[in-house]
Amino acid sequence: MTEGNGLDRRVPRVRQRLGLLVWLVCATCALVLALGALLVALEADQRIVLVDAVTSGAAMVDLAVFDAGSGVVQFTGEDAAVKNALVNWGLAAAVWLLLGRLLDGLLSR
């Protein structure tokens, strides 16, 4: 057995684990966005540390394009803030999931 054979077996395993890690990070970002949108829809008290942490985290990973306040879709009128958060952060979550699956597939080949 040559040294190259051992390395040849390890590279796909490392790529597969890296793909899984990327997928988990992207799925976590999507989960934070979904929880943030849910907390906004439920009008959770922002003074609660956990609520503030989740909504702040969602604002950090919303890719700036899907901002709950000024994202790609803007509602006006009654409950506009809730609708904006649900739609924009929902779209951002879908993008994170799609990106994660795409990168996982590319890395795991």
Rank of each mutant, 00 (worst) to 15 (best):
M1K: 09
T2E: 12
T2S: 11
E3H: 13
G4Q: 05
G6F: 03
G6W: 04
G6P: 02
L7F: 06
L7A: 13
R9E: 08
R9N: 04
V11F: 09
V11A: 09
P12F: 13
P12N: 11
P12A: 06
R13Y: 00
R13C: 03
L18W: 01
L20Q: 05
L20C: 04
L20G: 00
L21Q: 06
W23A: 03
L24Q: 02
V25F: 10
V25K: 08
V25S: 06
C26S: 10
C26R: 03
A27Q: 01
C29W: 04
A30T: 07
L31E: 08
L31P: 06
V32Q: 09
V32R: 02
V32H: 08
L33E: 09
L33M: 05
A34G: 06
A34W: 09
L35S: 04
L35A: 04
G36C: 02
A37L: 01
L38E: 02
L38V: 13
L39F: 10
L39D: 00
V40Y: 04
V40T: 02
A41R: 15
E43R: 15
A44W: 00
A44C: 01
D45K: 09
R47E: 12
R47P: 06
I48E: 07
V49A: 11
L50E: 06
L50M: 01
V51P: 00
V51T: 00
V51I: 07
A53L: 10
A53F: 05
V54A: 02
T55N: 05
T55Q: 05
S56D: 07
A58R: 06
A58Y: 08
A58T: 07
A59I: 04
A59E: 10
A59F: 07
M60H: 14
M60W: 14
M60L: 15
M60C: 11
V61R: 14
D62W: 04
D62Y: 08
L63W: 14
L63H: 12
L63E: 06
A64Y: 15
A64F: 15
V65C: 09
V65I: 13
F66K: 04
F66S: 02
D67V: 01
G69S: 03
G69Y: 00
S70I: 07
G71T: 07
G71L: 03
G71M: 10
V72N: 03
V73L: 12
Q74K: 15
F75V: 05
T76Y: 02
G77L: 08
E78F: 02
D79M: 07
A80V: 11
A81D: 12
V82Y: 02
K83A: 14
K83P: 02
K83W: 15
K83V: 00
K83T: 05
N84W: 11
N84I: 14
N84R: 14
L86Y: 05
L86P: 01
V87H: 08
V87Q: 08
N88T: 14
N88Y: 09
G90H: 11
G90K: 15
L91W: 14
A94I: 12
A94N: 08
A94G: 14
A94P: 07
V95F: 10
W96A: 12
L97M: 13
L98G: 14
L98K: 11
L98Y: 12
L98V: 15
L99Y: 10
G100T: 11
G100Q: 13
L102F: 15
D104K: 15
D104T: 07
L106F: 13
L107F: 13
R109G: 12
R109M: 11
